[in-house]
């Protein structure tokens, strides 16, 4: 065998190996589920009904997401559904009575949590997630006296104020975003919502003044911009630092929303509805 034959054989071998390898490796390829979060184990815990009508619910989660729902069922004070990883430790749900208040504490390391609350009870909610998402979307009336939702490090809070009987809500995000949507026709009484974002953005979807609903809106950005989204226009109006809008019926109607938004570094986006009475 001369050197030319050897060189040719090497070339042919490389080509043959590459073709065979390509076909065989593709046929035998079993993808690892790298895109899945791996929450494969479900744990459901219920806190039974008791005589207390006010529930102080405190939830702490290191990583993952929290979704709050409600039900008309009167079987439990609250039901917590955990989606956990196969090898993760069981979450902790504790409860204790203190006078007319039931204290419920929930703790989990890494999970997707769904909290189901009863409509006929009154709640104080404290939700703290280190990294992840808090989603509060309730279509049915739920009575929440105080809502305190915090993303300790990074993540997002999305809240839909539809049918809440809410007194005060404080939504805080260290780095990330808050999205808020509301339907004024289903808000009752005076409600106060404070949004604080250190670095990131807050997005407030539109709501308008109606004969039975008024609002006061205050937005402040330390470093960044406030964008007021104009109806039907492609450009944004830019306003520096602060923006204050108060509806003409503020103080004279029973149903009111007091909304204060503060962003340290970033942006606030407000939908067009406020344009009619920008001060």
């Amino acid at each position: 065998m001369n050197k030319y034959q050897v060189a040719g054989c090497v070339i042919a071998a490389i080509l043959l190996v590459s073709v065979v390898y390509s076909i065989v490796s593709t046929a035998l390829y079993r993808p690892k589920a790298v895109l899945e979060l791996g929450y494969s184990r479900e744990v459901v815990k219920e806190v039974a009904r008791c005589k207390q009508s006010l529930v102080n619910l405190e939830l702490k989660l290191k990583a993952g997401s929290v979704t709050v729902n409600c039900t008309s069922s009167k079987e439990f004070t609250c039901k917590v559904i955990f989606e956990l990883k196969e090898d993760s430790e069981d979450p902790v749900v504790k409860n204790a009575s203190l006078g007319n208040t039931l204290m419920v504490t929930i703790f989990a390391e890494d999970a997707e949590i769904t909290v189901v609350l009863a409509k006929d009870l009154k709640y104080n909610l404290t939700l703290v997630v280190d990294v992840g998402r808090i989603s509060l979307k309730l279509g049915e009336p739920l009575s929440v006296n105080l809502l305190n939702a915090t993303i300790k490090y990074a993540g997002r809070i999305s809240i839909a104020l539809e049918g809440w009987k809410l007194n005060k809500a404080v939504l805080s995000v260290n780095e990330g975003a808050v999205t808020m949507r509301t339907k004024p026709s289903v808000l009752f009484g005076r409600q106060e919502v404070r949004i604080n974002v250190k670095v990131g953005a807050a997005y407030v979807k539109p709501f308008r003044q109606t004969p039975s609903f008024g609002y006061a809106f205050n937005a402040t950005v330390d470093v960044g911009w406030i964008y007021v989204e104009k109806l039907g226009a492609k450009k944004f109006y830019e306003r520096r630092d602060t923006l204050s809008i108060v509806s003409s019926n503020y103080g004279s109607v029973r149903n009111m929303l007091d909304l204060k938004v503060r962003v340290g570094l970033g942006a606030i986006v407000v939908s067009e509805a406020f344009l009619f009475s920008v001060e």
Binding site: S18, V19, S25, Y29
Partner: peptide, 23 residues
């Protein structure tokens, strides 16, 4: 011979990516 071999090898990478996204 040469371009088909190269194409098959590149294609196997694409196929694996496809399998990863859509098993």
């Amino acid at each position: 011979v040469f371009t088909f071999s190269l194409g098959v090898l590149l294609g196997s990478w694409m196929a694996k990516l496809l399998l990863l996204l859509f098993p």
